[in-house]
């Protein structure tokens, strides 16, 4: 006789409450994970999506790439040595569209590389989020520090920096706008850190962490997620514990009339597994649905693998807590 199932059928409300707690808390965890992920994409997808490699900035910039100036001789030297290397700069700024509406963008310019979009003088390639704002290929954009005009050449997906869409512009335009010829950074994909005089190497992750807003944002969100995981695990463990404490008398009777102890444990575990699996499947599907229907402006990104990972975390935690 399946006691676990019989009990759940009889005490629907009790198990429904337990299930909905797990559902709500895990859903919240997934949502915040999605938000953290989305924000981090929004903040630094441009950097995050680059393959693992090394970022170099001037040593005296002290980890702040905005202050970094890499001497062009040095740049030449690195690029000569590393075929794949690309020198680039980025700077926040504005583009005005034909209706004179300002769009905040992150201007990026680089030496020739397959990892960065190639743009010629007078052209601009934009992150596709600007397409949703009504900008089209062939539109003409201006910037008040630049005398010429930018013709929109095309769009690229998922290139964001500091919550702004990236705008790739030519080296000449960048030089005119910001009055610097030297690049801020050199990036060498798929490589180990090397010693260049006057340059400091950073891995992708280290470089991301030098971006102050990125660091602070992710740290606080990750802390929330961890707290949620811990709290929900504890909550679940406590609830389950209390439920079983209430039933100690019943377990005693069942044992007295000859039910195997292993059967009792099976009963407890079956119930726990059923509840967690059902609530987690529901909360994962719902969060995926949110992922699908959430408005494009909402920074939300939740892949199944993130869910499954937090799910795994969650459950290994709960299992340890209840043992």
């Amino acid at each position: 006789m399946n006691l676990a199932w019989k009990e759940m059928k009889k005490n629907k409300v009790r198990f429904l409450i337990l299930g909905s707690i797990i559902f709500l808390v895990s859903f919240l965890t997934f949502m915040i994970s999605g938000l953290a992920n989305g924000l981090s994409q929004d903040n630094a997808a441009f950097i995050k999506d680059l393959p693992q490699g090394q970022f170099y900035m001037a040593e005296d910039a002290d980890g702040t790439f905005n202050l970094s100036r890499i001497d062009s001789d040095l740049q030449q030297e690195v690029i000569r040595k590393e075929k794949e290397a690309v020198a680039f700069s980025m700077q926040m700024g504005f583009l005005n569209d034909q209706d004179d509406k300002q769009q905040s963008v992150a201007f990026v310019t680089s030496t020739a590389s397959t990892l960065f979009s190639t743009v010629y003088q007078g052209e601009v390639i934009l992150d596709s989020s600007l397409q949703d704002k009504g900008i089209q290929v062939g539109d003409i954009l201006t910037n008040n520090q630049y005398n010429g005009k930018f013709i929109v050449k095309g769009f690229v997906a998922q290139k964001k920096y500091s919550h702004a869409p990236v705008a790739y512009i030519s080296e000449e335009a960048y030089e005119e706008m910001y009055r610097v010829k030297d690049k801020q950074l050199i990036y060498v994909p798929n490589s180990e850190p090397q010693n260049f005089k006057g340059l400091q190497a950073y891995s992708n992750k280290e470089f991301l962490n030098t971006i102050p807003s990125y660091n602070a944002e992710q740290l606080s969100l990750n802390m929330i997620i961890w707290f949620l995981v811990v709290i929900s695990g504890l909550l679940f463990a406590i609830f389950f514990y209390m439920m079983n404490v209430q039933k100690i008398g019943l377990y005693g009777i069942l044992k007295a009339i000859g039910v195997k102890t292993s059967k009792l444990f099976n009963m407890i575990w079956t119930q726990m597994v059923i509840i967690t699996v059902v609530s987690l499947v529901l909360s994962i599907s719902l969060s995926q649905l949110v992922n699908l229907v959430s408005p494009k402006e909402m920074p939300f990104s939740l892949t199944i693998s993130t869910c499954v990972f937090s799910d795994w975390l969650y459950r290994s935690y709960v299992v340890r807590a209840t043992d």
Partner: peptide, 22 residues
């Protein structure tokens, strides 16, 4: 002992101690 209890013994307690969900 469990087997013996399950097959050869019967129990009645002061409070009937039935299984509440059956």
């Amino acid at each position: 002992i469990r087997k013996l209890r399950a097959s050869k013994f019967g129990f009645v307690f002061q409070f009937s101690h039935l299984v509440p969900f059956l």
